[in-house]
């Protein structure tokens, strides 16, 4: 069910990126898609009633220094969170580049409307 909602968010982003005429709105649509995928990744690692996968002193067995079984059984999967962090860094880079291209295009053409920015054809 939640996955379906996530996919709905993805499709909303795709719709926005494909249909909208304004360059900034297209960028927003792409970012909505990106976050839908990030949300999906986070939800993959989730388990009901799970705890954050952060180790502190209370999670270690005092005698052996190993992780307690309770921690291992209830913590959520940390790997998707690391993946999402990396994906966010990447999307930050491409977002900054996209916005700067939008700003430069506005400076050249004086509009954000892609139907009026049409020098390339064919």
């Amino acid at each position: 069910m939640l996955y379906a909602l996530c996919f709905l968010l993805f499709m909303i982003g795709l719709y926005c990126a494909v249909i909208k005429k304004n360059m900034v709105k297209i960028v927003i649509g792409i970012m909505v898609m990106e976050y839908a995928v990030n949300l999906f990744l986070i939800m993959l690692g989730y388990r009901t009633g799970g705890i954050a996968p952060i180790i502190d002193k209370s999670q270690l067995e005092p005698s052996t220094g190993q992780l307690t079984a309770a921690f291992l059984n209830s913590s959520v999967d940390p790997l998707p969170q690391a993946l999402v962090l990396t994906a966010i860094v990447i999307s930050l880079g491409s977002l900054a580049l996209m916005i700067s291209i939008c700003v430069r295009t506005y400076g050249k053409y004086g509009t954000f409307d892609i139907t009026q920015i049409r020098r390339l054809k064919g």
Binding site: V27, E34, V37, S94, M98, I117
Partner: peptide, 20 residues
């Protein structure tokens, strides 16, 4: 220039959708 920015934006939108 005009054409380069337009082409770059087009490429970037489609490329980002591909990456996603």
């Amino acid at each position: 220039e005009h054409e380069e920015l337009e082409a770059s934006f087009k490429y970037m939108v489609l490329g980002s959708i591909g990456s996603i």
